[in-house]
């Protein structure tokens, strides 16, 4: 565990707390893509299946259980508690365009051709692109609530912080995990546009608005 990973994981935790806080305080899930949130449930379930047969550490166990349960809770909030505030006509990205190719890629590019390894690899690829429905939705509406942008900034920062962690681990442990690294760089890259607007507008006190 190094400082970059710890900060990355804390950013990930923070993003979830921000999202739940947004939904509870505004009593709404407006501006949040249900599809992206559903993809995260799939990501966590396929990646953390090792909970059933491996013990790594208490930290690792608690975080995995938290990510699975909180992502399920978010889906519940969107699907039941705040359902009337969700507008499916804005959430139109086709997730099969993400899930299908990620699964095929996981079948081809993996470390071992085993069920759990393929599921892990699939989860890494899917996580990299799971934000697409959310970004697509914001592109359509051209705006986002400030709290939603804080959520996305924390979520993007999480994987971005894993990159210096991988560099650190390369120099201290000599290990490289090419699947995670390549997917992590792609994932972070997808946020660059968003980060630009976040830093130049939201952090200057302006509303998040995309040019028409």
């Amino acid at each position: 565990m190094n400082i970059f990973r710890l900060l990355g994981d804390l950013a990930h935790l923070a993003s979830i707390f921000i999202l739940v806080h947004k939904m509870h305080t505004t009593r709404s899930c407006r501006g949040i893509s249900f599809k992206t949130q559903a993809l995260y449930v799939l990501v966590f379930l396929t990646r953390y299946i090792d909970l059933l047969y491996t013990w790594i550490s208490l930290y690792n166990f608690v975080m995995k259980v938290f990510f699975i349960s909180s992502s399920g809770y978010i889906l519940y909030l969107m699907k039941y508690r705040f359902r009337p505030t969700h507008d499916p006509s804005l959430d139109t990205f086709k997730v099969e365009y993400l899930v299908g190719p990620c699964f095929v890629l996981a079948l081809i590019f993996n470390y071992r051709f085993e069920v759990t390894e393929i599921l892990w690899t699939f989860s890494i690829y899917l996580e990299a692109v799971a934000i697409f429905p959310q970004l697509f939705m914001m592109q359509r509406t051209g705006e986002a609530e400030t709290i939603t942008t804080h959520y996305l900034a924390a979520l993007g920062a999480y994987r971005a912080l894993y990159i210096p962690n991988w560099i650190y681990r390369y120099f201290t442990e000599g290990t490289v995990d090419p699947i995670a690294v390549v997917a992590g760089i792609v994932q972070t890259g997808l946020y660059l546009d968003f980060f630009y607007v976040y830093v130049t507008k939201v952090l200057q006190g302006q509303k998040f608005e995309l040019p028409a």
Binding site: T54, Y111, R112, T175, D177, A180
Partner: peptide
């Protein structure tokens, strides 16, 4: 040999 992936990462 196991895969080169970091099993301890989230």
């Amino acid at each position: 040999a196991g895969p080169p992936r970091a099993h301890d990462e989230l």
